[in-house]
Write a protein that binds this DNA or RNA. Structure first.
Ligand code: ZN
Ligand code: ZN
Ligand code: ZN
Ligand code: ZN
Lengths: 161, 161
DNA sequence: CATAGAGTGTTATATCATAACACCATGCTG
DNA sequence: CAGCATGGTGTTATGATATAACACTCTATG
């Protein structure tokens, strides 16, 4: 249930885990990177780099350049804290950092929300099919467009976080 | 085996099937659209819209605008003759048009070739996992980065069609 | 403190994609 | 055949996404 929930908790939780993971790894989660992570988490809809840029410029007072955001995102993706949704050119916070993975996503075309799937059966099927063809897998990308449960009810399709 | 094969045959075959399918459907495969399809098929590497644009401008004598190419590609994708590789912003000819499908791809990071997978087990796994979560699938995207069999041998990694 | 390495700022530029509008080809109607 | 409707194409401009090159700053460490 993504529609109507305590999203402040999602954000706080993500930041806490990020702090812990980076400390553990000796990776430097600087204030800029942490702020970008927080902005990526501003909803469960994948967020474009330039949207985050606007957030930095407008919500904070700091005018920023695209590279600032892209470099922070690069770090966050490397650390597995954020995934890039290729089919949307956008970024979303990882639901389960810690274990590195490429991420599988269900993207709702009605509300724009994307939920992380990470189903081992999907991953297995891909790896099996690939290895049968002698293909060595490095990073599987799975992005499924469709309609989420909430948006299948003709009622409320609010674009909520 | 994509390295070293009679690619002219691949192209001719693709064009023949496209002619047949479009005739059957009453879709208008104009000379421009047919030419773009041929250029997409110039190799088994996904080809960017602007690369095709350059082909049109240089190999043919006709200076063209981006929209010309994008509109042709849009038609070809709608007809299922071409797939878009989201993670590369590029386009590739469909190996099995006729049956409409979203396409699953194994993309080699060494030679750039992309081969179409279309494995029913992968599709089933995705649909099962999605439906367990009440998610209605419209278009699954699977793009696997890795290394193809030919490029795993330290020998010839020529970027062949 | 000195220094090295990582992070950031700044400017410019590359790459990918679409909007708006006019013109032309094709095929159908009357 | 003339007139018209539809869809395809050309042209120009602009928007959206991403990176290169280089200088400066911070932070950890000895
Ligand atoms: Zn939330
Ligand atoms: Zn939805
Ligand atoms: Zn071929
Ligand atoms: Zn290869």
């Amino acid at each position: 249930m993504l529609h109507a929930h305590d999203h402040a908790h999602c954000i706080a939780d993500a930041l806490t885990r990020a702090d812990a993971l980076c400390a553990e790894r000796g990776a430097r989660l600087t204030s800029l990177r942490r702020r970008v992570l927080e902005l990526v988490w501003s909803g469960h809809q994948p967020r474009g780099a330039y949207a985050i840029l606007d957030d930095l410029t407008q919500r904070d007072g700091k005018p920023a350049a695209p590279l600032t955001v892209y470099r922070a995102l690069e770090f966050l993706v490397e650390q597995g804290l954020v995934h890039r949704i290729e089919s949307l050119n956008a970024y979303i916070g990882c639901a389960e950092p810690g274990a590195m993975h490429a991420g599988q996503f269900l993207v709702c075309e009605a509300c724009g929300n994307a939920v992380e799937l990470d189903d081992p059966r999907v991953d297995d099927a891909i790896r099996t099919a690939a290895s049968e063809r002698g293909f060595q897998v490095r990073r599987p990308t799975v992005e499924v467009r469709g309609t989420c449960p909430d948006c299948q009810k003709p009622d409320l399709q609010e674009k909520s976080p």
